[in-house]
Nucleic acid binder design. Structure first.
Lengths: 200, 200
DNA sequence: GTCTATAAATGGATAGAC
DNA sequence: GTCTATCCATTTATAGAC
């Protein structure tokens, strides 16, 4: 998925970088990045700190790689959505696309959404996220001027509410759970555009 | 608001417990609870660690007091909503009530929503929050069976989506910002029930 | 690829004087 | 109510052997 050599080392006991990153992201999501020590991580993996530092340069590098994965996915989804011909289809595409990225890369996106900006890496990621949000707000504003979205609501507020709904998915969605991701994308689109009230 | 003696000590330079808690909650929200050291907090307040520990027993006590404030407010709002006579008015009341608590106690609720369960205090607060969510899900299910809410959606998923939208308010709402809290409650209710699409 | 051992700094918290 | 000084556990990270 990320960069490591994809030769499945059968029978070999050793870990590789991908293992470390996977476990790290998992643990960061369970406990929070700052509450997770490198010892916690080595404990889960069953190796020592020195062995871990043989695979990654720092604890923060694990975060950085995950954030790149999350932001890359979201930016790609936005790029694709912008190819759509109409304001309505662009809006629909970015909502569906964002839900898809959120479910497919749930652990990485979760980290992104919980950032506080406590380091240069975090502030850089937050800046990219703001750029994404800003472009999406443009799509919503565009949809408003075409009469597709209600205008009694500021475009920024509308975007934040919709993405509040979308982003909250990372807090409860589980890939092996009962909720189908494709179905979920449709449900979120329906609730975002039509609300909870039954169709008239 | 919390417990401290409310005699405004004019002219006196010293801090009191309320100051410490206010500054602590503020800093926890900026940096995250775990990323915030007691030194960070004393630095902001302009006193030493010993002086700070004269006002509070521990770093975690600050968190605990804030969480009690947040949960108390939400539970009170739910209790009030349950007094309403119809399923529709109960659902409306808890949505409006939750938005009101979120805007009035934004810092405290923000802490609650970011908990990971890293201590007994955190897991206890998360249990209370789950109890709240569960009761609200009951209200949504009730509204579904009365035809007020669409039934092509699991009640749990619907609740999570709506509260995802509501809860996201803590991430951007500022009491001194341009968004009026009462207006916001109405907008969220309108989008939650009717969606982004303009009224037909 | 993993280990033992350790460095150097920072974490939360306390003792006791003023 | 605040201070200086300090304790001790834990933190991220490194050196160097196997």
């Amino acid at each position: 998925m990320t960069t490591s050599t994809r030769t499945a080392r059968r029978g070999r006991p050793g870990h590789d970088r991908a293992d470390v990153i996977r476990a790290g992201v998992e643990l960061f999501n369970e406990q929070g990045y700052d509450a997770t020590s490198v010892s916690d991580l080595t404990g889960r993996l069953g190796l020592t700190k020195s062995a871990l530092y043989h695979h990654v340069e720092s604890k923060e590098q694990i975060l950085q790689i995950a954030l790149e994965d999350a932001l890359g996915g979201l930016e790609k989804a936005l790029e694709d959505a912008l190819q759509q011909p109409t304001a309505g289809s662009r809006l629909t595409a970015i909502i569906e696309g964002a839900v898809r990225v959120l479910t497919e890369r749930q652990p990485q996106v979760t980290l992104l959404l919980r950032l506080r900006g406590n380091s240069e890496i975090e502030t850089a990621a937050l800046a990219r996220r703001r750029r994404f949000d800003h472009t999406v707000t443009g799509l919503v504003r565009e949809a408003q001027s075409e009469g597709i979205v209600r205008t009694d609501l500021d475009a920024g507020v509308a975007t934040r509410l919709i993405f509040g709904m979308i982003n909250s998915v990372v807090e409860w969605y589980r890939p092996d759970g009962p909720v189908d991701p494709d179905l979920l994308a449709g449900e979120i689109l329906a609730v975002a555009l039509g609300g909870l009230r039954p169709r008239a």
